[in-house]
């Protein structure tokens, strides 16, 4: 059986909220190392890869590998019943029809129990190659969100160019052009505000802003976001979670002229 207890329901609520507009039905693959999810959006442009490591739960028990096929809209309805600070426990049998969710509020001695019906989801798993990215940029997640939202007002695409001097987001639209350049910046007192750039070669790629704005729904999960780019490969947008867990988004670049 599976039994996984999260100190705060907040984490799962935010993860599901961040991905539910991108993917609808997906398997939560549970094994002894944790709970993983990999799913493409309907148009096969973006890929979500989530890993909640066993260490992020306390306790965590998973006797047999189990795939929990979940409709995220339905899961959202159930998670709405959990307060952010509630202790959340996920439970499932070895061949489950339902996922049992328990929310506990120790202050008010309230215990809520929900059973979510599971579905059989035949999901293709993609092999994500280990990539040595040419550019890795770490920046505040709210800054990245602001840039994407601002540029989307002008255009549907953004060009991202990185050099050792900085990272430049630029777009061209019907009403005009826009560009935001961030230079490397270290703030000892506020390390969350740092912009760090590691570069082995310059990169220039174009991406759909609609997807990037969608990824930015995860900004509440982490104060910083990491962008990993190499020419002619998908962009990796990573939100690191506590206990080496993560929420990653991959986005295929726009190609051709």
């Amino acid at each position: 059986m599976l039994e996984a207890r999260l100190e705060q329901a907040d984490l799962l609520k935010k993860v599901v909220d961040a991905i539910k507009d991108l993917v609808q039905d997906c398997n939560f693959d549970c094994n002894d190392s944790g709970v993983a999810l990999q799913a493409m959006d309907n148009s096969h442009v973006a890929l979500v890869s989530m890993m909640l490591k066993a260490e992020s739960f306390s306790p965590y028990r998973c006797d047999r590998n189990v795939a929990l096929g979940v409709n995220l809209t339905s899961l959202t309805k159930v998670l709405r019943a959990a307060q952010n600070e509630d202790i959340l426990t996920l439970k499932a049998e070895d061949a489950p029809d339902v996922l049992n969710l328990v929310f506990e509020n120790t202050d008010s001695d309230r215990l809520s129990e929900y059973d979510l019906k599971l579905m059989d989801i035949d999901q293709e798993h993609l092999g994500i190659p280990d990539t040595e990215y040419a550019a890795t940029i770490s920046l505040p997640s709210v800054e990245f969100r602001r840039i994407c939202v601002d540029l989307m007002a002008l255009s549907e695409s953004v060009s991202i160019e990185t050099s050792k001097d900085g990272i430049k987001f630029s777009c061209a639209g019907d009403i005009g052009n826009g560009a935001v350049t961030l230079r490397p910046n270290t703030n000892v007192e506020k390390p969350d505000q740092n912009v760090e750039i590691e570069l082995t070669e310059p990169v220039a790629l174009t991406f759909s802003l609609k997807y990037l704005v969608n990824f930015c729904k995860a900004a509440g999960l982490s104060k910083t976001v990491k962008l990993c780019l190499s020419n002619e490969v998908p962009l990796l947008v990573e939100y690191a979670l506590a206990g080496s867990s993560y929420l990653r988004f991959y986005l295929a670049p726009k190609i051709g002229d």
């Binding site: 096969h44 798993h125 993609l126 190659p129 695409s157 490969v233 991959y250 295929a252 726009k254 051709g256």
Partner: peptide, 14 residues
């Protein structure tokens, strides 16, 4: 004009 690539053309099926 650039066209949108598919994630499947970069990451093969397992």
């Amino acid at each position: 004009k650039k066209g949108q690539g598919s994630i499947m053309s970069f990451f093969g099926k397992k």
